[in-house]
């Protein structure tokens, strides 16, 4: 107990997502490829067992893993 369910990178990506940044924006900000950003998002969706980005955001908010 005590470990976040997100990696630091995943947390960064979702923090930018909730601020209305696109995948392309996030890739530019973090200096990684768009494909890598999409992979991270897919990993989180899978970890949370949800169907899409919006549901992932809601779950992460409920878990206090990210903040608005």
């Amino acid at each position: 107990m005590g470990n976040s369910i997100l990696t630091q990178r995943e947390k960064e990506i979702f923090t930018y997502l909730i601020k209305n940044n696109t995948t392309k924006d996030i890739a530019n900000i973090l200096g990684i490829s768009e494909k890598t950003v999409r992979n991270h998002i897919s990993n989180v969706i899978q970890k949370l067992g949800v169907k899409g980005r919006s549901q992932a955001i809601i779950e992460l908010l409920k878990l206090n893993e990210i903040n608005i």
């Binding site: 997502l17 909730i18 209305n20 980005r53 919006s54 955001i57 809601i58 908010l61 409920k62 608005i68």
Partner: peptide, 14 residues
């Protein structure tokens, strides 16, 4: 007593 009523990622207000 939190309620999450979010449909999109934009304009999140608390």
């Amino acid at each position: 007593n939190k309620i999450y009523d979010l449909n999109t990622l934009s304009d999140c207000t608390i």
